[in-house]
Design a binder for these strands. Structure first.
Lengths: 313, 313
DNA sequence: TTCGATTTATGCGTTGGACGCATCATGGCG
DNA sequence: CGCCATGATGCGTCCAACGCATAAATCGAA
């Protein structure tokens, strides 16, 4: 009397999810190969295998990369949750000692939040026993927040608080956005010294002014006309209206370049791209919660593939 | 300026999840091999690989099967959700035409609900756009419910409504529970004819009386003293107190055999086990929603491994 | 147009992992 | 004690996935 019961056997695999995510983020199979520690040919074949498993074409092959199809976008929506949940389970297995079930987290720059909050929602959905609290009021006082015991984890750029486990995660690039007709927008690059002639539209939090000035000018400290704006849309609109150069993370800028006639131009300083290194720091008491948060953030990834392809040159 | 960014690479794999689930449900590697369409040796090695990936021992090996460790139980909690979600995504990819986002579902026997509801919650969590409504008031009117357009899907035993896509899923066994000191409880089996001497404690819904009588007595129709009870606990408690034999699905009974001194004995008729075949029927308009619900139910599976091992003899 | 620099796709040889078969070691039970 | 179940393992086979090298296609600039 054999049972007919069977276990569902998904044809999609973890490998497929990783390949699809990597190809989307990198934009090309060759770049994805670096992410996956494979060769271009392996990625091409792995992607074909993923599409065979899915039963649908997931990417349109163009001569300048791969663009997700409708089905591909569906899968790209779901893959981070799956991948992150699996990592989360894995870490939970390796340290069954339940640490604190609350994480108070902050980022040293608000421009990561569109990305960070998605990861947090996903982690809370995967493990309802975890409660994550964002403490944006500590954005520019991360070190003090840790010392006062008001923080458990943070995503920071530049030099992280000392004495805490630290992990380098990724980089982003700060770019300048100007109106297409702006005097500096005649080229893709501009001389930082010319910046003194125009308004600089910057986010309200000044955490990284030191880093920013040193990157652009070294020891010289020219006087810039900085206008602080608490709203990203205000920065971009002022820039579009010709009132100055907005400085924003590539993650944020991509959103405003979607519309066909955005009237904006992205500029980089002639001294080289302003790349920031992001680290993850956390109190050791977090136990397995720290890697679970980290992996979910990495799985969620930046919103668009421009994140990666912009760095390839 | 290479990005440090990386994709999380879980060491656990879909394969691992399936093996762990199968081993738990089957109770032994040999039985799990049947579920997985493998051999015992392959399952043994695959389980060892899963434990290597997890970094923890997941099962205690005894000479009469495998018992999950604490870590194993954690993984067993999460695996169905992962597996079912993956299947769900897969079906969604294959039919991007969004069907109705509501499923009205019922089961022809309430004893499947502890299992069914868990699958429903998991499916709703995986796809918040789906709303699943359970219609227990149609439990004994499944066919009429379909004809009246009040149902989209149903899990039924025996003969399903005609004219609808039907799919055989699994079997369960109805067993009889009596007090350890009951006159019939001297052996593991009892003569069905002896049943006329005692009270039969049955669920309130009488959907399957015909099937039940035919299985036990063929064409003969002896008069039974049936006491209908709407509450499972009442059935079991009356049985424990010696007031008759409760007839329940193995899925339900297992729960009451957990405590060490339950004072109960499970009996089967001498004419053979009362196995019921379960089918899944649904309106074709459901599209991809039907296989998604089905797979999540199969992934969620019965609560305990007794479900399977009880059928091996 | 022509050439070069991209891109993805593919033929080929190699290798490691997963499988089945057969066997071994262990522990409960009569 | 002997029997029967269990899981583990040695061995030979085979396929899937990899890297290397190369082809085919497309775009942009000379």
């Amino acid at each position: 009397m054999a049972r007919i019961e069977s276990l569902p056997a998904p044809s999609l695999d973890v490998r497929d999810l990783r390949v699809v995510l990597a190809v989307h983020r990198a934009g090309t199979t060759a770049a994805a190969a670096k992410l996956l520690h494979l060769t271009q040919s392996a990625v091409s074949r792995a992607l074909a295998a993923a599409e065979a498993h899915a039963g649908v074409e997931l990417f349109e092959r163009t001569t300048r990369g791969l663009e997700p199809t409708a089905a591909g976008r569906v899968l790209l929506d779901e893959a981070p949750q799956m991948l992150g949940s699996l990592c989360s389970i894995e870490h939970r297995l390796k340290s069954p000692l339940a640490g604190p079930r609350r994480i108070r987290v902050v980022a040293s720059c608000s421009m990561i939040y569109p990305w960070l909050t998605r990861a947090i929602v996903r982690l809370e959905r995967a493990s309802p026993d975890i409660r994550i609290e964002i403490r944006p009021e500590l954005t520019d006082r991360v070190t003090a927040g840790f010392e006062a015991g008001k923080l458990d984890a943070a995503f920071v750029t530049g030099r992280p608080p000392k004495g805490l486990p630290r992990e380098q995660l990724f980089e982003d690039e700060l770019v300048f956005v100007a109106a297409a007709g702006h005097p500096l927008a005649v080229d893709d690059t501009f001389d930082p010294d010319a910046l003194t002639e125009f308004d600089l539209l910057a986010p309200a939090v000044r955490t990284e002014d030191d880093w920013f000035m040193r990157q652009l000018y070294g020891r010289r400290r020219p006087r810039l006309r900085v206008r602080r704006l608490p709203i990203t849309e205000a920065m971009v609109e002022l820039a579009r209206a010709g009132f100055g150069l907005a400085v924003l993370s590539e993650w944020i800028v991509d959103r405003y370049l979607q519309s066909p006639d955005h009237g904006l131009r992205v500029l980089r300083p002639t001294t080289g791209p302003l790349c920031r290194e992001w680290s993850f720091v956390h109190r050791p008491e977090l136990g397995d919660l720290a890697p679970r948060l980290r992996d979910m953030v990495l799985a969620s990834g930046p919103p668009t593939r421009e994140h990666f392809s912009a760095s390839s040159h």
